[in-house]
Structure formats: C-alpha cells, structure tokens
C-alpha cells in the first residue's frame, strides 16, 4: 500500500469528511528528511489498514492547504479526526513517535 496523494480538490472529501481518523504527511519533492520517513509511513499505513486513512500532500502542488494549516517545517505529519486537526508531528521522527500519536486517536 502506498500513500495516496490528496489535493485541494479532494481535501474535504478525503480528509475532513472521513469517518476514520486520517494521517496526512506534508512533503516536498526536494526535502531530504521526507525521504527518510516515506518508508516508515508506508509501513504504518499497512499496519493500521482499515482503521486509519493515510494521505500525503505535496506542498508545492497544494500550497493553499499547507498555508491554511500553518505548515512551516517539512516533513510535518498531521492527524485529523472528525474534520479537526488533532496532532502535528514535525520532522523526521522515529516510528514510536508516530505510533504513540496514532494510538491516541483510534
């Protein structure tokens, strides 16, 4: 399973109106640390399949979403539930940091 991309056009339906919690990775093509956590998040997407929806946002292609949610450092991972932002994790963090956050919202 790979992370599907979400854009301005699909943001509301895929993220805000999702019945399951949603994990969103904000990334950019030339961001080095983003490359380090891509495989980690692919693994998490598999691990939480059916319980958590996982998407990624290319901040160069969808700048208005990144601006709306105050993204500064990339990568930033956000968790949404019931249309609300619940948590934000900045930088290339260890797997345990992400799982701890995910578990809180399942």
């Amino acid at each position: 399973m790979i992370f599907a991309g979400v854009t301005e056009a699909t943001w509301d339906s895929l993220v805000l109106e999702s019945s399951s919690p949603v994990l969103v990775e904000f990334w950019a093509p030339w961001c080095g640390p983003c490359r380090m956590i891509h495989p980690l998040k692919d693994k998490l997407a598999k691990q939480y399949a059916g319980k958590l929806n996982c998407y990624k946002v290319n901040t160069d292609e969808s700048p208005s979403i990144a601006t709306k949610y105050g993204i500064r450092s990339i990568p930033t991972v956000m968790i949404f539930k019931n249309g609300e932002k619940k948590d934000a994790i900045v930088g290339a963090v260890p797997e345990s940091t992400l799982t701890t956050s995910i578990e809180k919202f399942l």
């Binding site: 961001c31 640390p33 380090m36 601006t67 500064r72």
Partner: peptide
C-alpha cells in the same frame, strides 16, 4: 543516508535556479 544529502543539495540548486537564492527546500513558504 547520503540520499538525504543529495536531495537537499538538489533542492537548494533548484531554488538557486528559480529564485536566485538557495532557499531551504524543507519548509513551506506562503
């Protein structure tokens, strides 16, 4: 992981080409 280094160097170069300055590629700017 030299891939990280390489991607960042290319990102800086891309910003140098398009913006005239090596703006950090690991941030989002309005």
């Amino acid at each position: 992981e030299k891939g990280v280094t390489s991607v960042v160097i290319k990102g800086l170069a891309e910003h140098k080409d398009t913006l005239g300055a090596p703006l950090c590629p690991c941030r989002h700017y309005d």
